[in-house]
Lab assay of single mutants.
Amino acid sequence: MPVRRGHVAPQNTFLDTIIRKFEGQSRKFIIANARVENCAVIYCNDGFCELCGYSRAEVMQRPCTCDFLHGPRTQRRAAAQIAQALLGAEERKVEIAFYRKDGSCFLCLVDVVPVKNEDGAVIMFILNFEVVMEKDMVGSPAHDTNHRGPPTSWLAPGRAKTFRLKLPALLALTARESSVRSGGAGGAGAPGAVVVDVDLTPAAPSSESLALDEVTAMDNHVAGLGPAEERRALVGPGSPPRSAPGQLPSPRAHSLNPDASGSSCSLARTRSRESCASVRRASSADDIEAMRAGVLPPPPRHASTGAMHPLRSGLLNSTSDSDLVRYRTISKIPQITLNFVDLKGDPFLASPTSDREIIAPKIKERTHNVTEKVTQVLSLGADVLPEYKLQAPRIHRWTILHYSPFKAVWDWLILLLVIYTAVFTPYSAAFLLKETEEGPPATECGYACQPLAVVDLIVDIMFIVDILINFRTTYVNANEEVVSHPGRIAVHYFKGWFLIDMVAAIPFDLLI
């Protein structure tokens, strides 16, 4: 008679799926529990143990900040960024110097990925580790590398530091407007667009060049630039800015003055950032001319202004700041037409079709709590990747769950009947059967004279019903998954307890 339990259901295979997918890609990662103190490590794979030199037993239950890997060259700011990422709910990448158990130093890129439950609360953290440099290539500990984003994938490793954006290309926007319009339909740009040429040739750093990471940081200074100062900065030398009595002219307006920039070969870094931020506020060169004239017309309804409409929906549905990093990277690809469009465009503009998908598509409701890094690593669709929660398995109709209350009560009843059979069957065979043979035949009273025979008949009927119930009862397979398919249940029961239950259900007393 089957006594099969499996009270692990309803099970959740999400954690096993993450481990299996990460292991298949030869990654070095740990999984931490966000619900406990210090976000203790609950799993670390073999790749991480080989990377740091510690065994799994030495890593388990330690804080996922990996303070046991810190050393003299470990930056405090990087460690603080990892700790801050564990307090938030967004994906974050941090470069930090770690030390192995043998004392060797290596520069590592740590990717902190939160995993949320159905309520939107962070319950786990996945920390992925990628070695960037070994100890002989690690720089000085005073050099802070965590304020910069990861290198873009479309640049060669040897040319990542030679990417320079020439400031004269930004200063000569109005001069290039006529050349853009003359391109017409034969050019790649839309009317009114501004073409910015980027020099990728390796050259020595000069005062006129600005690194790509500095251009990325310009967006942080746009908020500090007032509207009046932006307007004066875009007017140009024809209309000098008016300053109040006793007030000095704005240095932001002076930063885009061609006369002032041409007199000296070098520009201050602050002026460069502010000038680029001011130019980015204009949607095209037409807006710059309109600002000089004193009238700013409404933005025209053409394809170039609607190019950012799908980007707005993608940004609203993005799951991490990696989408913004990807957008900034692609927006700086050289030799393309940049349409400086305000994100607050007309909502009635139709979304044009684009061959290049900048932001990841909208994630469906079932995966809105899973970050983009987890979705990318697992390579699963929205119909396959579940949320991290207890999910009731989908069972067929008329199927009994093996952990249901009805099955528990039924098993206790069958257990009592088995005990009765084990006690009274030998007793009936030894004593009652002998008395029946010696006594007179009682054929007239039937079952009324033999109450134990009636009980034995009921017990046999219950055993037959138990066999039928076992054909529709779920079970737990070797992978700790609840199986509810009727065919698989029948095959599993035939290979197991079916023969024993059938022999126990045969009414031998009635056959004798």
Rank of each mutant, 00 (worst) to 15 (best):
R5P: 05
H7I: 08
V8L: 07
V8M: 15
Q11M: 15
N12T: 11
T13A: 07
T13V: 14
F14A: 11
D16F: 10
D16A: 15
T17P: 11
I19T: 05
Q25T: 13
Q25I: 07
Q25V: 07
I30N: 01
I30S: 01
I31H: 01
I31C: 04
A32S: 06
A34L: 01
R35V: 13
R35C: 06
E37D: 08
C39N: 15
A40C: 11
V41G: 01
I42D: 01
I42R: 01
I42Q: 01
D46E: 13
D46T: 06
G47E: 06
E50G: 09
C52W: 15
Y54T: 01
S55H: 07
A57I: 07
M60L: 14
C66A: 03
L69D: 01
G71N: 01
G71C: 01
P72G: 01
R73N: 09
R73E: 14
T74V: 01
T74Y: 01
Q75F: 01
A78H: 13
A83T: 14
L86F: 01
L87D: 13
L87Q: 15
V94L: 01
F98V: 01
F98W: 03
R100G: 01
K101H: 03
G103R: 13
L107Y: 15
V110F: 01
D111W: 05
V112W: 01
K116Q: 11
K116P: 12
E118C: 06
G120T: 06
A121S: 13
V122W: 01
I123L: 13
F125T: 08
V131M: 15
V131K: 08
V132F: 15
K135Y: 05
D136A: 06
V138C: 13
V138E: 15
G139Q: 15
H143E: 14
R148F: 06
P150F: 06
T152H: 06
T152Y: 15
S153D: 11
W154F: 12
L155H: 11
L155M: 06
A156C: 06
A160V: 15
T162G: 14
T162L: 15
T162S: 08
F163I: 06
F163T: 15
L165M: 06
P168C: 04
A169R: 15
L170T: 11
R176D: 06
E177P: 14
S182V: 06
G183R: 08
G183M: 07
G184S: 06
A188D: 06
A188F: 05
A190N: 05
V194L: 01
V194E: 05
V195S: 05
V196L: 09
D197T: 01
V198A: 05
D199I: 01
D199F: 01
L200D: 11
P202T: 06
A203F: 06
A203Q: 06
S209E: 08
A211D: 15
A211T: 13
L212S: 05
E214K: 05
T216F: 06
T216N: 09
A217N: 06
N220S: 05
N220G: 08
N220W: 06
H221E: 12
H221Q: 13
P237Y: 11
G238F: 04
P240A: 15
P240W: 15
S243T: 13
S243A: 10
S255V: 15
N257G: 12
A260V: 12
S263K: 15
S266L: 11
R269T: 07
R273C: 07
R273M: 15
S275E: 12
S278M: 15
V279Y: 13
V279C: 12
S283M: 04
A285W: 11
D286F: 05
D287V: 09
I288P: 07
I288L: 09
R292N: 14
P297T: 09
A303P: 07
S304Y: 11
A307T: 12
H309S: 11
H309M: 05
L311F: 08
R312W: 10
R312F: 05
T319A: 14
D321T: 05
I330R: 12
Q335K: 14
I336T: 15
I336W: 15
L338A: 11
L338M: 15
L338S: 14
F340P: 09
G345S: 07
P347H: 15
P347Y: 08
S351D: 06
P352K: 03
T353I: 14
T353F: 08
T353Y: 05
S354E: 09
S354R: 05
R356I: 15
E357F: 13
K364W: 05
R366Q: 06
T367I: 14
H368P: 06
N369A: 13
V374I: 13
Q376N: 14
V377L: 14
L378V: 03
A382R: 13
L385P: 10
L385F: 14
